[in-house]
Design a protein around this nucleic acid. Structure first.
Lengths: 357, 357
DNA sequence: TGGTGTTATGATACCGGTGTCAATTACTGT
DNA sequence: ACAGTAATTGACACCGGTATCATAACACCA
């Protein structure tokens, strides 16, 4: 007779999943009424409501997302897109996002991509059109590309970007104000007594690299410390480039007493290099990183760095994106879009040797 | 007239995406014929074929995955499910999987979950039923649960698991033979001359923890070295537990000259602790980890550890899963399912002090 | 040239949901 | 009691694909 019910009664779920028609039949109502219940639409009689809900419960029914997506012209899929090699940044952002996706009936698709590909942006657009993804979260440095943003707008794709540079498009971005953090670092170094400071800049193609450089230089300048050209070296945000930059800085005629690296990965490269050279940290060399990756607290000595609150950013970005997917731009605008990173003081910072006992 | 074509001609894609009906109309054929072309079905005339292909090209048409999924009763979605806190293991596996998903028209959904939840397995089943995911890749230690496997079988969900324990169900698993690696570690330590060896075991709920323990003990025993009860401590696979275990081992009456930690995370905890205690690595203490996480080569001295080839495992698992999704169990069986980890010798291993100059 | 067996193609139902709009039922106030 | 309005409900088309099966076109051979 009723094969659906039998399947359930038998204890394990076998055969096909129940459909909206099964629910409708068993509840003695039309498909449309069941649909109303599923989507919490108004104007359903109290008796009908509880009857349908009971059947849904009994059958352990859940709507088919493909069918739903087809009817709604939606996929209930969000994507996190990035060309960033920094695994901890990504996982943090991902966890922040996932926590908001699931409860709202969305799933998250991860889409790492290759920044060296010339067709990168077009490939992303193709990906979105092909999958019918409802919206995307863009991680830096990809999020800094206006070209990509314009292409997303052209296909009317919802997006939220995680960026360090300020913009007034508050509905579509979460901003981590690392200017403040960089200032904090400069002032911390000055307060400790450092005057010969080395700076490892991130790759040139990233706006936030330039920004960190400018802010750091200006903040030092305001305290009467000049960042000379030979005290600035260029890294690639990788461990190895941290090693290379450290060699360059520490083997110069006038080695710095403190080094600020634009990310933790490079800062740890500096640490390892200094230790190999027999330089003690922090008594002979102060090091500060940026990102507060899990490794930062797992090296010896523990690295002083900046926590960007990436997980929180992933969460806020997702909330905004969900609002946008529901055409609620007003809501997206009201969700907090600025996070202030914090300087995490650990064990790699100390006054320079000249000021010590 | 033809709004679709106009949209394309105007340069940017606006309005709705073309559908199969648009293609059919412009090519002067039926929807079904276009469907045949899309799915590379046989029995399509050469002239018709090229005509349809041209229209698809011109329109930049791609089929709607929701509609396709609905008709095929498939979602073209795979999920990677894990309760593992080890970020690098996961990202490696993820990258390995992604490389195979995309070219085959599948997307990957990430599904981390909370191992402390009692309803964990049922939640996973619900997730699969709700999303209509076509197949799942299970990462350890979740992949070791027979209960979960049985539940997956009950709902006929395709799965492939990454496991360290051997099983004959070769179509549904990729096996990393860490027994060999653990043996290599034991023999390496013996060869260096170590006789007082400490072992940090992983959490009790994991089969691979027990296995690593057994194999390590036996391999030492075969070389005439006994692993005493007070030389075995229990860790939780976290950095902090590495610290705790190190304290326990190093402050004992008879501290070991070498420590093998069941994962890198704990091994690095041991390193940091030893360094804080003024113990030099490797001259006074040899340390070996397991996993070859990115951090292993980014600590000082660089950690000797075992590379599990996780990315390759992710790739193989995905290939198997895709074969299973296409009901090709035979193919799934023939895909390589055993990987031999390699011992990566770096800088944390040396002969014990007693044997040194 | 006609009969036969393939190959190529299309009409129509269907996958499992939602939107529209008309029909039915339930409340109002007088 | 009864018109008037609001709340509830369902019939049916539709979203964009695929499966089935009947039919049309073609090739082959006697």
């Amino acid at each position: 007779m009723d094969s659906i019910k039998e399947n359930i009664i038998e204890g394990s779920i076998v055969g096909k999943k129940p459909t909206i028609s099964d629910v409708a039949r068993l509840a003695g109502v039309s498909k449309k009424t069941v649909s109303r219940v599923i989507n919490s639409e108004p104007n359903v009689g109290a008796k009908t409501l509880s009857k349908v809900k009971k059947v849904i419960e009994d059958l352990d029914y859940s709507p088919n997302p493909q069918a739903r997506g087809l009817a709604f012209s939606r996929s209930f899929l969000l994507a996190m897109i990035y060309d960033n090699p920094n695994a901890s940044f990504i996982t943090d952002a991902m966890y922040g996002a996932l926590g908001q996706c699931r409860p709202n009936g969305y799933e998250l698709v991860v889409h790492p991509c290759d920044a060296t590909q010339a067709s990168l942006h077009d490939d992303i657009i193709k990906f979105i059109r092909r999958t019918k993804i409802d919206g995307v979260i863009l991680l830096p440095p990809l999020s800094e590309s206006n070209d990509l943003i314009n292409k997303l707008k052209a296909i009317k794709c919802n997006y939220v970007r995680l960026v360090s540079v300020i913009s007034d498009d508050v509905a579509h971005m979460v901003h981590f104000n690392d200017r403040e953090a960089v200032k904090d670092i400069a002032e911390h170094l000055i307060a400790l007594g450092h005057r010969d400071i080395g700076f490892i800049k991130g790759p040139d193609n990233s706006k936030s690299s330039a920004e960190r450089h400018d802010v750091f230089r200006d903040a030092l300048e305001q305290n009467g410390v000049h960042l000379g050209a030979n005290q600035i070296v260029f890294g690639a945000n990788t461990f190895q480039s941290g090693v290379d930059c450290a060699v360059q800085l520490l083997k110069s005629d006038n080695p710095p007493t403190a080094i600020f690296a634009s990310n933790d990965e490079m800062a740890i490269g500096v640490m390892v290099t200094a230790q190999k050279m027999g330089i003690d940290i922090p008594s002979e060399l102060t090091i500060i990183g940026f990102d507060d990756t899990p490794q930062a607290s797992k090296v010896w000595p523990a690295l002083t760095t900046v926590n960007l609150k990436v997980k929180e950013m992933g969460k806020l970005a997702t909330l905004k994106l969900l609002a946008l997917c529901n055409n609620n731009i007003g809501l997206a605008k009201t969700i907090k879009s600025e996070l202030v990173p914090t300087l995490v003081r650990r064990e790699t910072t100390a006054p320079p040797p000249i000021l010590r006992g």
